[in-house]
Computed example of a mutant assay.
Amino acid sequence: MLGRFWRALPWDGLGWGRSPDPVLSDLRAWAAASWRQAQARPWRPLLGPGARAGWPLAALGPVLAFARARGLDGAATARLYGDCLLTGGGPVDVYVWRSLWGGLHPLPGRGAGLLLSRLGDSTGHALLADKLEAAERLAMADIPVPVMRGVYRRGAACDVSLLADAAPGQDLFLKPRHGQGGRDAFALTRLDGVWHMGGRPVSSAELMARLARLVLRDDLLVQERLVAAQEVADLAVNGRAPVLRLATARLPGQAPFLHSALLTLAVPGRNPRHFLEGAVHAPVDPAEGRLVAGLTLAAPRTRLDRLTWNGALLAGRSVPGFAQAAAMVLRAMAALPPLPLVHWDLIPTEAGPVLLEGNSCGNWILACLPGLHGLEACPLPPLLARWLPDDRRL
């Protein structure tokens, strides 16, 4: 229990300094105060000072571990530690931000989550956090979503019959109903009577053991796995299709609009959940639906006109079904209770784009990546500020 509280520092998302963006600085202060106000009354006065006092020690271990892994020298490690102290961000976030934009990260991890989750309609956030309910709502709005094979309910016994109904060679995709960032999600295929989990052959006993562990924590959704359209098949890795991430935004009382777009590709031999090395990100010009040069967050200054492992073209390449996907996410945004910003993940398939899920509290670095090329509709901080309650409007 104590370890969990320690790892959650800084509890209110603030560091020792102010955000370099004055609008985000005020927004973060408001979100931190709102979070503290929601806690038990006896603890409220202690939470801010406690977070500031505990943060230097809590940040030190992760910074040193990250510095060793990246081979940083003493000066770079000291600067990284200082950035973490001032921003309240973890070493990965603040390191990538400085590498891309220079200076301090204006809205790292926990601060972003506390802020974004408090702007807009709370029922909209809750709906997107529930992948099953969100898929049902979007399907009612005639938006293509993955075919659902069934659900393993939390705490219930698992059996293989739900999976065995899949056609031989039919890929399935299993994910927690309330999961985030692909955690505990995996692909499953049955070939010649043998289960392959994430491309690796496993016994039925091993598969059932994993299912049993996962359903202890959450419902587990069983869907048909989506296959990339032939036009982007050379961008897929081990059957993992490229993901089109479209950010939609809106002002209070106004229609949603497309803010920016990003195509994310898996990297061979890397864990796709590894923030630095697991993906190539290529922004999309929303006016033409064409990619610009991509990058990995492990080497953010190196621009990739082509993929290094197979020479597949990135820069200038058209994204199939982009206009259809953009229209689709605007309908999806309009079908939700009002929210300021949602990132939608879609797969470009042969039948057209299919919407996987939406996230109302996405990573700020990925939200800002298209802005490196001037490919965003508007600056986000002033837009977010418009969603503050009337009595707290900046």
Score class of each variant (00 low, 15 high):
338 P>A: 12
235 L>R: 05
154 R>L: 07
180 Q>R: 15
196 H>R: 13
9 L>D: 08
217 R>T: 12
347 I>A: 04
67 A>P: 13
24 L>H: 10
165 D>W: 06
190 R>W: 09
82 G>I: 05
220 L>R: 05
297 L>M: 09
354 V>W: 01
290 R>Q: 09
4 R>I: 07
310 N>V: 11
282 A>W: 01
260 S>R: 02
393 R>N: 10
341 L>Y: 13
154 R>Y: 00
394 L>E: 04
80 L>N: 07
300 P>L: 06
237 V>R: 09
290 R>I: 01
338 P>C: 06
323 A>N: 02
32 A>W: 05
360 S>H: 11
242 P>Y: 04
315 A>D: 14
308 T>I: 11
130 D>M: 08
38 A>S: 13
17 G>E: 06
377 A>I: 00
386 R>Q: 15
35 W>G: 03
83 D>M: 03
184 D>F: 07
269 G>R: 06
352 G>P: 10
5 F>I: 15
180 Q>T: 15
177 R>S: 12
54 G>T: 10
113 G>L: 09
8 A>R: 14
291 L>Q: 01
339 L>Q: 08
357 E>L: 03
260 S>W: 03
32 A>L: 05
84 C>D: 11
122 S>N: 06
390 D>R: 11
183 R>E: 12
155 G>F: 03
189 T>R: 12
310 N>K: 06
129 A>T: 08
349 T>G: 07
91 P>H: 02
329 V>G: 00
175 K>S: 08
34 S>R: 14
11 W>Q: 07
303 R>H: 10
380 L>T: 14
109 G>W: 03
9 L>S: 09
319 V>T: 06
15 G>T: 11
271 N>Q: 10
3 G>A: 11
114 L>Q: 10
360 S>M: 03
329 V>P: 00
2 L>Q: 13
234 D>V: 07
